[in-house]
Amino acid sequence: MVVTTSWYLALAAVLFSLGSVGLLTRRNPLVMFMCVELMLNAVNLTFVSLGADLGDLGGQLSVFFVLVVAAAEVVVGLAVIVAIMRRRPGATADDLSVLGG
């Protein structure tokens, strides 16, 4: 059995869907961040496999940028969580409901 590019693309699509469903349904902020990471890494897999398929280095190059961005994003997200947890220990996403009209 030959594993072709489309297998990788399908795996990436599944991972991306898992990440997006997880982000929308989970309530623990840390798990939500993990879901964001899962989505971004699914995109990375897509980039790499498409780049290999096209014989183009651009796809692999993109992954470096995405990795850096993902790291920076999580740093900021964790800082916001820490700020919230100081005020309200043990808060989940559902507890953040002061706003709304």
């Binding site: 997006s20 989505m39 897509t46 980039f47 498409l50 780049g51 961005v69």
Partner: peptide
């Protein structure tokens, strides 16, 4: 951002 990036990856492909 993840959606946008996934779209970019597919356009690249």
């Amino acid at each position: 951002s993840a959606f946008l990036l996934y779209g970019m990856a597919l356009v690249y492909g």
